[in-house]
């Protein structure tokens, strides 16, 4: 947790620095308008960097014994990475394969991977979920969901 906190504060410091620099390029006043768009980002950026520094100081000088716990286990990271990839692939799939087909695939994949059900069950579940969601959202509620290459 200790190292993670230091990492967070350093990361935030960089982020707030970037925000402050960007804010400098935005006008701070406009003709007839008291406060331009650059003011709030400037202050928010400065405040964030102040907080980042406080977190840094707190971690270096006032170490608490309970902070020894490790935050990220490699195994965990791998699993979360995989899930994140699956979710992103689903989003990409919606654009190219169409909402219905992508939904079917992700449902089959998730239920198979997480639940380890038999293939036919996963497939059935995927088809049902895709069918129901396409029916409800695309046709009943008239939401223009992407259709992708195959129009599904």
């Amino acid at each position: 947790m200790f190292a993670a906190n230091i990492g967070v504060s350093l990361g935030l410091l960089v982020l707030s620095g970037a925000v402050v620099v960007t804010a400098q390029q935005l006008p701070r006043t406009l003709p007839g308008i008291a406060m331009g768009p650059g003011v709030l980002p400037l202050w928010a950026g400065l405040l964030m960097s102040l907080l980042a520094v406080s977190l840094l100081i707190q971690n270096i000088f006032f170490r608490s014994p309970s902070l020894k716990r490790r935050v990220f286990e490699p195994k965990e990271l791998a699993a979360v990475g995989k899930m994140f990839f699956a979710i992103s692939a689903y989003a990409a799939g919606i654009e190219y394969l169409g909402f219905g087909m992508a939904t079917c695939i992700i449902v089959v994949y998730l239920s198979r991977y997480l639940g380890q059900y038999a293939w036919w069950r996963c497939l059935l579940f995927g088809l049902i979920m895709a069918g129901v969601s396409v029916g409800v959202f695309r046709y009943f509620l008239d939401l223009p969901l992407p259709t992708g290459w195959f129009g599904l």
């Binding site: 979710i87 689903y90 939904t103 992700i106 449902v107 998730l110 239920s111 991977y113 997480l114 639940g115 380890q116 059900y117 579940f125 979920m129 969601s133």
Partner: peptide
């Protein structure tokens, strides 16, 4: 079961 709930949440 969560394996069924997760895709529903996602969709």
């Amino acid at each position: 079961p969560y394996p069924l709930l997760a895709p529903i949440i996602l969709i």
